[in-house]
Design a binder for these strands. Structure first.
Lengths: 167, 167
DNA sequence: CAGTTCGTTCAATACCAAATGAACAAGAAA
DNA sequence: TTTCTTGTTCATTTGGTATTGAACGAACTG
């Protein structure tokens, strides 16, 4: 292969890498994760070979602290795992390329707690309106019934999405 | 009705109101909207009677600017509409009690653009990898195919959710 | 053992987006 | 017309949180 073509190759790969990182940075922002988390996952996703924390900090220009915390989060989501490499005591990280790991982990660890909190809160509100006399505050009661329907719906939605992730 | 019971009533209503607002504040935070937007929608949701901007700023202790911008956003979502009241030139706002208006508007105005952006970006990446020689970078190409599958999936998910909202 | 390497934690900092409020425009009232 | 009322916009301030980097513990190495 000619070295000119080779150079074009490298450029294309580098650009791709950058674009993939950008993609995951955006995804991270949309679902409310730190930009560094998106960067880390993006770089790992675009790289076949396992990377050390040191490589992540150098290539992404982020601090050791950010890398450590980002990787911790991504591991808790099951979106990244560390691979053992013979004769190197450093951790080597690879992306779980099934994106559902990232999204599934996010839903499990971040979304679910919110839904649970909302359900609890709605029950508490229920207690409050229960003491109100029957025909007064009819509209308020009606609206709360609507909200409770949403609790059910929301709790149904999560499994649905998870199922969709699996498909 | 005894005035003591009446007092208990008012307390319960006030607490309910507060709890409903809290609920929507949390929802707002989860989907990445400003706290004030959640507060506004929450108060309107908990109140039968249409409210003026002035009432919103006083009861929520937020600035006129925040109220104006929050209402603007909520109207753009179709989650709030203004009602004309005879002999009062001020705008009077009521919540669209179908929560799907809020979520639907959010998906339409906020989520959809991100998906569109991602789709465009993926096409650009496609162009980049297209120039790479066949068997090299096989893994990279494979991973991009995975991402493209997600574009399709994401674009399918949105209508699904919208349908669920309607149900 | 002392000296390195590696990863984590957390207090300090830097950054950014949300909230404010003054200034403004458009009507209405007087 | 002038004066109020009402709502919007936008430059500034504020508040919250993401990122940093120093300090630390643990686990190797020589």
């Amino acid at each position: 292969m000619a070295s000119g073509t080779q150079g074009a190759d490298e450029r294309a790969v580098a650009q791709t890498e950058k674009a993939v990182i950008e993609l995951f940075v955006r995804l991270a922002q949309v679902i409310g994760l730190q930009r560094t988390v998106g960067e880390i996952y993006g770089l790992l996703y675009a790289t076949e070979r396992p990377l050390t924390m040191d490589e992540l900090t150098r290539r992404l220009r982020i601090s050791k602290g950010s890398a450590s915390q980002g990787l911790k989060l991504l591991r808790s989501f099951g979106a990244v795992r560390s691979e053992y490499i013979e004769g190197d005591r450093r951790d080597h990280y690879v992306a779980e390329v099934e994106v559902r790991h990232l999204l599934g982990g996010f839903l499990r660890e971040r979304m679910q707690p919110h839904l649970a909190w909302g359900a609890t809160r709605l029950n508490e509100i229920d207690q409050l309106v229960a003491v109100l006399p029957g025909d007064n505050h009819k509209v308020l009661k009606d609206r709360l019934v609507r909200l409770k329907r949403w609790r059910t719906r929301g709790q149904r939605l999560l499994p649905m999405i998870l199922k969709l992730l699996r498909a």
